Simulated assay, not measured.
Amino acid sequence: MRQLTLNDVKAAVKGGSIFASGGGGWVDHGLEIGSAAITIGRPKLVSIDELPDDAIIVTATAIGAPAGTTDWQMLGKDYIKAVQLLQERLGRKITGLMTPQNGMSSSINGWLPAAALDLVVVDAVGDIRAHPTGKMGSLGLAGSLDYETIQVVAGGKPETGSYIELVVTGTPAKTSNILRIASDMSGGFIACARHPLPAKFIKENAALGGISRAIELGNAIIKAEKEDTSKVVDAICQTTKGKIIGQGTVIKKEIRYSVGYDIGTITIDTEDGLLTLHVMNEYMAVDNQKGQRVASFPDVITTLEPGTGRPVSVGHVKEGEQLSIFNIAKENLPLSTGVKDSSVYPEVEKVLGIDLAKYALEGHALVR
């Protein structure tokens, strides 16, 4: 157990921005929420081994499209309110909070409500990288008919009538769909608390140490930035065992917003040919011009500025700019039960019109 600091906030946002895979929230939002957390309380990061097996852990997150295409508002108090509402509905003490994914602000998701409500931040994630659906970060429960979950959302603009508080119970699949609609109705981005589970279940199904990994990567980036920004990409690759799989000019960006998702493709012209990045909030796959899969979820796929190594999210990608495509193969990542759950893929495959499950689950070879 250790107390989280402002340096940890900065590092978690830096490292989380790589694991964000083009989505995962906003840097400014992560810094604001993280700074508020260490200002109003003393949030502590704990490993799952430090908690009793029956301690209740809740996932704190945000739901919506990160590309900035909607008029949304979510305040720090919304994260707190969502956890409070879940606590009231559960009727039992919550011990800690975890995040379903790393990201620009996602890595910080639980820090503010943990500080405000005297809970701990658990060093575990539902997925080491960011992903589009709540089902992917649901620790293998997405298709379960036996687990009755509680899911809560809070957020929106009261002045426009879009503020929503919603508590739902039921199967993870059905309640997740309801929350996605609520996010869209609130403006496209909303705070969420969900899935109260015992620590023993988290230990057996989560990607453990996910927050520490983001902080470690962030510290490596910060150190490289102080020495020479040209060393940042090397620092990212060395720390993660990742690599650059292509670099070139963005020649086409076709992204549309639909019910809480940013969907489409980004095409980059590299010296080895065209690479197409498939987007559903985050980068889910990369195909070459022969239609061969180069990288695929649950790989980390992130676009970087070639000179500085700064991550460029989907919403900030512009046609005509130079970008590098960074990849961490799934073999070099801790994988949760959630990304090994076959039930989470059909929905995303239908939207994108590509195969994902066969690469994620069956180990099909990629063109590396």
Rank of each mutant, 00 (worst) to 15 (best):
I268N: 10
I178P: 08
S105C: 02
V294I: 14
Q289V: 00
Y163T: 00
K253R: 15
N177P: 01
K200Y: 02
D123S: 02
K318R: 15
L166S: 13
Q73M: 11
R293M: 13
T276P: 11
V13K: 15
A11V: 02
D8L: 02
A130W: 03
V153I: 14
V167E: 09
S212M: 04
I325R: 13
L112P: 02
D49W: 10
E319I: 02
V9W: 10
I211W: 06
L117K: 04
C237T: 03
K44I: 10
P52G: 02
A142Q: 08
P198E: 08
I80V: 15
T308N: 01
E321Y: 09
D53Q: 10
Q238P: 01
A116D: 08
A154Y: 06
L97S: 06
M284I: 06
S343Q: 09
V153G: 13
N281Y: 11
F326C: 00
L356P: 11
G353A: 03
K350C: 02
K241M: 07
Q73K: 15
Q84G: 03
D299F: 01
Q247P: 00
V152C: 13
A60R: 07
P172L: 02
G23H: 10
F201P: 10
N177I: 07
K290A: 12
F326I: 00
A154K: 11
A142L: 05
K44C: 12
W26M: 11
I33H: 04
Q151D: 12
M74G: 00
T61G: 14
N281A: 09
R213G: 08
A285G: 12
N177C: 05
G96A: 12
Q3L: 12
S21Q: 05
L45C: 06
P346V: 05
V232G: 05
A365P: 05
Y163N: 02
L277F: 07
E349K: 11
T302I: 00
L277A: 12
Y257K: 08
L112D: 03
T69N: 10
E282L: 04
A124P: 05
V232T: 04
V13C: 10
D234P: 01
K10A: 13
L45Y: 08
L139C: 04
G91W: 06
L217S: 07
I63R: 06
N102H: 07
